[in-house]
Design a protein around this nucleic acid. Structure first.
Lengths: 243, 243
DNA sequence: GTGTCGACGGTACTCGGTGTTGCACATCAC
DNA sequence: GTGATGTGCAACACCGAGTACCGTCGACAC
């Protein structure tokens, strides 16, 4: 679309016209929005783009893939982001930031994202495809958290649940922005949603960390009287498990 | 299936042989396990079952559906369960119990469930189909929670996140049971996982101790790491209560 | 020149899924 | 009994996504 991948830019730079991949995307969306996804055949798309049928499948392994042309790159970006400085202090924060990468991708092309959203809501096949994409994001986050939570007692469980919650919160904010036709502040919306998740699983025994190691191996917890009991218990519990 | 649907039992009761639907499922799984899912065509299945090709699609709208023959019923059961006495005191508990319905369905046929699990892990198309099924469960739970959380500030967000967390916890326990070939106590595993989620969002969000607010009003607790949890809780609780 | 490599197009094929037709059989009116 | 109607199933034809194979053309070596 308006932000073409740079990987096959050579021929595009030489000829001046967009690369075949981009012209296929443009032709596909024009037809999808015009007559509907299922009413559009591959032959229609390649006919409009003026290329051979075989070329379509060279760039997109399936008809659904042309609807989500940038997710593969975003997934790679997320993986790279999680690998660089993987030892940040707060794993949940790191994962929230990784989720924000997806939001940014959507926010880069609001009109395109909104069009795709409406398409995806209508066509069951596209919804199923989107679910599998979301699942890959969630798996990426969960795998990262599993590494960070490896020392904990229920590390893998915690990783799976936190990843699911982060993805759900992110998607909640994203979808409300998409339903509003890309108006409003998507970042703020998602920030609020992610903050909600982060409050459920506090970063560190945060309130007042005040965990002092000593010869006698003690834990010191300082809490305000107002702090709800369940929260104190949880923080103490987290402190007692050496992570 | 050892638990055939009762809806078309008339002809089965008359002839004594399992209904066509069940014989199709049996033939399909026999071939899937023998030569693989993608290597098996619809013609193979109907040939083994001794029925016409068109009959397959009368009972299963797609090839994937024959792998998940009971989810439609389970989804209906869950919806009914959430509608009856929808005004229970704790919505999260209710949703956890609804998730347990799915576990029970899996636990009814351990060998079948394990076989299907292995199939689903291998075949991407089946994984995508399973994701769409899980998504429908999650939507059902989220819709229920939206109704219950309607009065809250971030009701829909909370509903989406809790539903996702519950589903993730349930699936975590379920999958670990499936990976163990159906050995062990699936119920206990899932109970533990769901309990973890319920701790993150406690039933009554705040049983405020109603302590006067004084910014400097803090409690200090010092405990050895080896101290039993119940004792720490007791001491903290005692300290938090105004003396 | 020849060899090779890579991008593209064309053709034929497999297979999932749908629509249609015709047959066998049961039921019911008469 | 006979004929009309409805239903479940098989057989056939058809569509479209996706794949395998091959052929073409241009770029670039040597």
């Amino acid at each position: 679309m308006s932000n073409p991948q740079k990987t096959e830019g050579e021929t595009a730079a030489a000829t001046g016209k967009p690369a075949m991949r981009d012209s296929l995307i443009a032709a596909a969306f024009q037809l999808f929005l015009d007559r509907g996804y299922e009413q559009t055949t591959i032959d229609d798309i390649v006919g409009l783009a003026g290329v051979g049928r075989r070329s379509f499948f060279r760039y997109f392994p399936s008809k659904e893939d042309v609807v989500f042309p940038d997710h593969e790159q975003c997934l790679a970006d997320m993986t790279a982001f999680l690998q660089e400085s993987a030892d940040t202090d707060d794993p949940v924060l790191k994962v929230c930031d990784a989720a924000r990468l997806v939001l940014r991708m959507y926010a880069e092309n609001p009109t395109f994202s909104v069009q795709r959203y409406r398409l995806t809501r209508k066509v069951p096949g596209l919804r199923a495809y989107e679910l599998s994409v979301v699942w890959r994001y969630e798996r990426t986050l969960a795998d990262y958290l599993r590494g960070r939570f490896a020392a904990r007692k229920d590390g893998t469980l915690r990783a799976d649940v936190v990843a699911a919650a982060v993805v759900a919160a992110h998607n909640h904010g994203l979808r409300s922005w998409l339903r509003a036709n890309g108006q409003g502040d998507a970042e703020a919306e998602v920030d609020r949603a992610l903050e909600y998740v982060r409050n459920a699983w506090p970063a560190k025994p945060q309130a007042q960390p005040a965990v002092e190691e000593d010869e006698d191996d003690v834990v010191v917890v300082i809490a305000k009287r107002r702090t709800p009991m369940w929260r104190v218990v949880r923080d103490v519990e987290a402190s007692l498990q050496r992570d």
